[in-house]
Deep mutational scan, measured.
Amino acid sequence: MVIEDPKTNKLIEVEKLPDGTYKVTIYDKKTGEKKTITMSKKDLEKLLKAL
């Protein structure tokens, strides 16, 4: 799943891993910076609600 946040000009890509956690990659379209973090479903839901 890919989500675009027009306010921050970032793309957020979410991928479910076999162990039940989620790999979240955040791309900054302005700088080209890429950050990848792994989080639980509960933390991911908090992140998505904040957008």
Rank of each mutant, 00 (worst) to 15 (best):
Leu11Cys: 03
Lys29Ser: 10
Pro6Asn: 07
Leu17Phe: 13
Lys35Met: 08
Leu17Ala: 12
Ser40Met: 03
Pro18Lys: 12
Lys30Ile: 08
Tyr22Trp: 09
Tyr22Ser: 07
Met1Phe: 03
Asp5Gly: 00
Leu51Tyr: 01
Leu44Asn: 00
Lys46Val: 12
Tyr22Gly: 03
Lys46Trp: 06
Ala50Tyr: 10
Lys46Asn: 11
Lys49Asp: 15
Glu15His: 07
Lys10Phe: 10
Leu11Trp: 04
Ala50Val: 08
Thr38Ala: 07
Leu51Ala: 13
Lys34Glu: 09
Lys46Phe: 05
Pro18Gln: 12
Thr38Arg: 06
Lys30Arg: 10
Glu13Tyr: 08
Lys23Val: 15
Glu33Ala: 09
Tyr27Trp: 12
Thr36His: 09
Val14Leu: 12
Pro6Asp: 06
Met39Tyr: 03
Ile26Asp: 04
Asp5Pro: 02
Asp43Leu: 01
Ile3Asn: 05
Gly32Asn: 07
Ile26Cys: 12
Lys49Thr: 15
Lys46Gly: 13
Lys41Arg: 14
Lys42Gly: 14
Val24His: 00
Ile37His: 11
Ile12Met: 03
Pro18Cys: 15
Tyr27Asp: 11
Ile37Lys: 14
Val2Asn: 03
Glu15Phe: 06
Pro18Asn: 10
Val2Arg: 00
Met39Phe: 04
Glu45Phe: 03
Glu13Gly: 08
Lys49Val: 11
Lys29Met: 15
Glu15Arg: 06
Glu4Thr: 02
Ile26Leu: 04
Leu48Ile: 07
Glu45Gly: 05
Thr8Pro: 07
Leu47Ser: 01
Val14Gly: 01
Lys7Met: 11
Asp5Ala: 01
Lys16Glu: 06
Glu13Phe: 04
Glu4Ala: 01
Gly32Pro: 02
Asp19Tyr: 02
Met1Leu: 10
Thr21Tyr: 04
Val24Met: 02
Lys41Leu: 14
Glu45Ser: 07
Thr36Lys: 03
Ile12Val: 08
Ile12Asp: 02
Thr25Ile: 10
Thr38Phe: 07
Glu15Tyr: 11
Met39Asn: 01
Asp19His: 09
Val2Tyr: 00
Leu17Glu: 03
Thr21Ala: 10
Ala50Gln: 04
Lys10Ala: 10
Lys10Gln: 13
Ser40Gly: 06
Asp43Asn: 03
Ala50Arg: 06
Glu4Met: 01
Lys49Ser: 14
Glu13Trp: 13
Thr25Glu: 05
Thr21Glu: 10
Leu48Tyr: 04
Lys7Phe: 12
Leu11Asn: 09
Asp19Lys: 08
Lys46Ile: 15
Thr31Trp: 05
Val24Lys: 00
Thr21Met: 11
Lys34Met: 12
Gly32Arg: 00
Lys46Thr: 14
Ile26Glu: 15
Glu45Asn: 06
Gly32Cys: 13
Glu13Ala: 05
Lys7Val: 11
Ile3Ser: 07
Lys35Asn: 09
Lys49Ile: 12
Ile12Ala: 04
Glu4Asn: 02
Lys29His: 14
Asp5Val: 03
Thr8Val: 09
Lys30Ser: 11
Ile3Cys: 04
Met39Thr: 04
Asn9Tyr: 07
Val24Ala: 11
Asp43Ala: 06
Ile12Leu: 05
Leu51Lys: 00
Ser40Phe: 05
Val2Asp: 07
Thr25Arg: 08
Tyr22Asp: 00
Thr31Tyr: 07
Tyr27Val: 09
Asp19Glu: 07
Val14Phe: 11
Met39His: 01
Leu48Pro: 00
Ile3Met: 02
Val2Met: 02
Lys29Val: 08
Lys16Asp: 09
Asp43Glu: 12
Lys23Gln: 14
Lys42Gln: 15
Lys49Glu: 15
Asn9Ala: 09
Lys29Thr: 15
Lys29Glu: 12
Leu47Lys: 01
